[in-house]
Design a binder for these strands. Structure first.
Lengths: 147, 147
DNA sequence: TCGCATTTGAGAATAATTCCTAAATGGAAA
DNA sequence: TTTCCATTTAGGAATTATTCTCAAATGCGA
């Protein structure tokens, strides 16, 4: 309930109508941490919201991305993935397990941002900087740990 | 002709049969600099090679990516794009014009590589590091210049 | 509460990519 | 240099992912 209100606020602050499909989709993304596809989001929400169509999930996701509330992540195989975490971070993508793992490092993002502040790129307005590290788990059953 | 031989060598060195479709597709990617889609590659080569099917272009591109001879670039709209330039560089992607511009900076890549050398990511073998900067041209008709 | 611009549901349509199978072929070995 | 065969290809069907269409529903400002 608390998260629902938080999500409603996010929508209004972004100048978007807080419609039921938007609240539900954004909420689902905020509580999930596995970078789901549109289809998986649809599956997860339809138990409680059987009337929300897959087409609407896609449409809502587009709106949320354009509003800067979520981001899209492209991976090798299958559908696009979505992430409600908009703090600066990169993605580790494992080709074998198809899992995406967030990956924070303030220092690295400081470096990259600093770089683009200094670099003069004329005639281009930067919207987002994506850093994605593709690879494979050595042991597919074990977790990836970052220290 | 020189490029064709170079491309043949690349294929054999990667342990791949130097088949006609592979030579032609890789050659086309090496000489083009606009990050074409599979369909565009097919269009460009079919004047001289009408028998190479679009399905084969896709199959060949997959093989070349897996062999590390080319890379895939994902963009917001439409098909995946391909790039035969494997030296460390990032991509500027303009949402309006759908153009991708290469973007070199040894210093930045030094920073990122250094970062991953120091950072301990356990149970993960890094295959590639992708840096993509999405944005929009301010004047869609003018070029993006980097200094 | 009303009015209406915006959004949605349902499903058709399109776009992008992969899959299938018989035929072709590159290149290792003789 | 020819033979042989595992690999690759052509052509087209099939599948997957996403977008589109439009009448009906709905959030929200007045």
């Amino acid at each position: 309930m608390e998260i629902t209100n938080q999500v409603k606020n996010q929508l209004s602050e972004a100048g978007l109508k807080a419609t039921h499909p938007r609240i539900v989709v954004l909420r689902e993304l905020v509580v999930s941490n596995d970078h789901p596809t549109a289809e998986r989001i649809h599956e997860n929400i339809k138990i409680d919201n059987p009337s929300i169509s897959l087409g609407s999930v896609y449409r809502v996701l587009d709106v949320l991305v354009d509003a800067g509330l979520i981001q899209r992540v492209s991976v090798r195989s299958g559908s696009k993935r979505y992430d409600a975490n908009m703090s600066p971070h990169g993605h580790l993508y494992c080709l074998q397990t198809n899992k995406i793992q967030d990956f924070y490092d303030e220092e690295l993002y400081e470096l990259i941002n600093e770089f683009f502040r200094k670099k003069r790129i004329r005639n281009f307005k930067i919207n987002e900087i994506k850093l994605q590290v593709n690879g494979e788990r050595i042991d597919p059953d074990a977790e990836i740990t970052i220290t």
